[in-house]
Amino acid sequence: MSPDFPPALLLRAARVHEVYGPGATSFAAIMAARSGGDILWISAAWQSGALHPPGLRGFLDPARLLLARTQSQTDSLAVAEEALRDGGPAFVVLEITRPLDLREGRRLQLAAKAGGATGLCLIPEGMGSNAAESRWHAAPVLDQGGGDSTLMRWEVTKNKSGTIGAWHVRWDEQARHLHVVSPAGERPGPAGLPG
């Protein structure tokens, strides 16, 4: 748990959040690494582009990770609800492929509240659910100055219990530590352009 992790970048515990964009996987991995407990990662069996554990090692120890492979989104939701309600894994990542309706989103939210685990849905763009606590857009950004090539832009586009904003962050793989590059709340120029 990093001391300089700005409070605005913390996912509120015991709630379900959403993230989309090309950097969603590393966002999920960083947030999971921060949670400090066991992690359950739920995805549909037919989805391509599986997690690559050697790549995950830069974020967290793959031994902390449990995978659930489901046949359908209904199964995924049922597994996520079960896990959130149980609270055994501290962090539950759910990859969804079709939009959640309000009832499904609300059920997940209630389960997270009951079990105390934090949930994060990886959603395709534009498939957010109204029940989500916060919605993030994560995208990698070209690092002009060289550096360790982990610059990312995180933007919170919906937040039920706070303000929205955007941050440029950098992940230190050695220390497993998140550095915020730009001050919180300041909106930098369009991603990827110099200046």
Partner: peptide, 19 residues
């Protein structure tokens, strides 16, 4: 492991995996 059992009754114990 209780949770794995409960999830396993739904999606099959062979679908709860680890690396």
């Amino acid at each position: 492991s209780d949770l794995i059992t409960r999830i396993g009754t739904r999606i099959g114990l062979e679908n709860v995996l680890r690396f």
